[in-house]
Structures are given as structure tokens and as C-alpha cells.
């Protein structure tokens, strides 16, 4: 099944049994558009923001979310886990140590996912332009849909950016996450420039890109080669008689 995965229609998400009637590309794309449009429309109305306070801007989130400005009335509410969240709000400067966690959290979120850079620190370093400890441009490391200018932006600005994001999602324009798959090598290169050539995350972005049908010319490259080695290394090491998971658990009890 896997050897011809690359030759298939990229829009086809799962391998289906050959006996099913396979829709031709034109038919599929028409359906896809209708369903996609509908899905976008729904998506834009139920957004969950990952509860990750990276910098000082996080102090304006409680007012935005609680009674006074009340984001929940437009369908945005906080979420505590990355897996269930749609929006990663980078609330301000990102220290090197945080950036690692931000990248990890971002990769754990399920597509489609959106990133909002909050405050001038994420745009071009802001206040901390000459600090050795913070990154200057967020979108070099993870793809960013929208930025809010200001230091710090007011709750109204946060609301405005959420509404703008909804409009973009509704119109199918908030697609920065696809860029991460298409140009993974570029992002990984920037990350490695900071964290050393051995840096990579446990998330298999290349496999995910295949899964979503988003393999692009920039997905793999000189910087992702390390990951291939890693995968081979892992395959080599799994012993033949590796116990099945169920067995293992039973014997422990």
C-alpha cells in the first residue's frame, strides 16, 4: 500500500480498498470545495485558543476572555491542551527556551491550526530588539497568519484580530499552516540555526505532510536529512521479538 502512496491523487486522504468506486478528480474537487467551504464556515465559528502565556501580552487575555470584553460571545474560548486547540496565540516576546516549547506545542496541534503573533516583539523584536535571549521574527520559526501591532495591544485589538481571523478562515485564506508542511525544510533550518544542527522535534512532519497531501518541493531538504537517519536508526534498533504492548501490560499485573 505504501509504495504507491506518492503516485496517488494528493487530495485522497486515506488509502481505500480498490473495490470502491474511485471518484475522478473533477468530481472530487467539486465536492471538496463544497465540503471545504462548509467546513471552513463552521470552523470559523468555534475556535479554541491554546492557553499558553509566552510573554507579557498574556495579561490582556483574561480581560479579553472574561466578562468585560467576553470573547466567548463570538465563539472563541480558551483551551488547555494543544491537541484540541485551533489557535496558538504567541503573546509577546519568545525567549529561546520558550521557542522550543512553542514549536513542540505547535506541531502537536492538529491541522488546520492558526498562529497569531501578538505585539511588536513577535514582529521585529520590539522592545527587546538587542536582547540576546529573545527571537526577533516569529514567522521564521513557525508560520504566522496574523500579527497584532502594539506594545501591548489592547483587548479590543485582540478581539479585532480574532474577528479578522474568522473572516480569513471563512474565506479559506488562513492557510499559513500549509506552508509549514510545504516548506518544512526552511523552518527547520531557521530553528537549527538557533538550537544547533542536531535539533528536531519528535513529531514526524514529513509523514504528516504526506498524510495531508501537502508534500512540496521544500518539505524535505538538506536539513531534514537528519530525520531520515533518525528514522532508519529507530527501525534498526527495534528487536524482532519486541513484545506486543498488550502482553507487556498483562505480565506486569
Amino acid at each position: 500500500m505504501s509504495e504507491n502512496a506518492g503516485s496517488r491523487n494528493p487530495l485522497q486522504l486515506r488509502d481505500q480498498p480498490e473495490t470502491c468506486r474511485t471518484a475522478d478528480a473533477e468530481e472530487r474537487s467539486a465536492w471538496q470545495r463544497v465540503i471545504g467551504r462548509f467546513a471552513d464556515n463552521c470552523r470559523a465559528r468555534s475556535l479554541f485558543v491554546l492557553h499558553y502565556c509566552t510573554g507579557c501580552g498574556a495579561i490582556e487575555l483574561p480581560p479579553t476572555i472574561t466578562s468585560r470584553f467576553d470573547m466567548e460571545r463570538v465563539g472563541v474560548s480558551p483551551m488547555v491542551t494543544p491537541r484540541q486547540a485551533d489557535i496558538l496565540l504567541i503573546t509577546g516576546y519568545v525567549a529561546l527556551k520558550t521557542l522550543k516549547r512553542v514549536i513542540l506545542s505547535y506541531e502537536q496541534m492538529q491541522a488546520p491550526k492558526y498562529v497569531i503573533g501578538f505585539g511588536s516583539c513577535t514582529i521585529n523584536g520590539g522592545m527587546y530588539w538587542n536582547s540576546y535571549a529573545t527571537i526577533k521574527q516569529l514567522d521564521q520559526y513557525i508560520p504566522t497568519d496574523l500579527f497584532i501591532a502594539g506594545c501591548m495591544p489592547r483587548p479590543e485589538a485582540v478581539q479585532e484580530v480574532f474577528l479578522e481571523l474568522m473572516r480569513m478562515i471563512d474565506a479559506g485564506k488562513a492557510n499559513a499552516w500549509r506552508d509549514y508542511y510545504r516548506n518544512y525544510d526552511h523552518y527547520l533550518a531557521n530553528q537549527q540555526a538557533l538550537f544547533g544542527p542536531q535539533w528536531h522535534t519528535p513529531t514526524d512532519i514529513v509523514a504528516e505532510a504526506k498524510h495531508y497531501g501537502l508534500m512540496g518541493p521544500g518539505t524535505t531538504g538538506p536539513h531534514t536529512r537528519l530525520l531520515d537517519q533518525h528514522a532508519e536508526w529507530a527501525l534498526d534498533r527495534i528487536p524482532e521479538d519486541y513484545p506486543e504492548r498488550g502482553e507487556n501490560e498483562r505480565s506486569e499485573r
Partner: peptide, 26 residues
């Protein structure tokens, strides 16, 4: 700790006394 490290003490040495007024509340 260190997730919010910005090297304040360092960058304050690089700015004028009066410029640091904008930096300290952060």
C-alpha cells in the same frame, strides 16, 4: 525558570538612563 528571560539587566546597560523608564515596568 528562564522561559521569560529577556536579559533585562544586560539590555538596560545598553540604553540611556531615561530610555530604561520604558523598559522597567515590563
Amino acid at each position: 525558570a528562564g522561559y521569560l528571560h529577556r536579559g533585562f539587566e544586560k539590555i538596560m546597560e545598553e540604553r540611556l538612563w531615561v530610555q530604561n523608564v520604558a523598559l522597567v515596568p515590563r
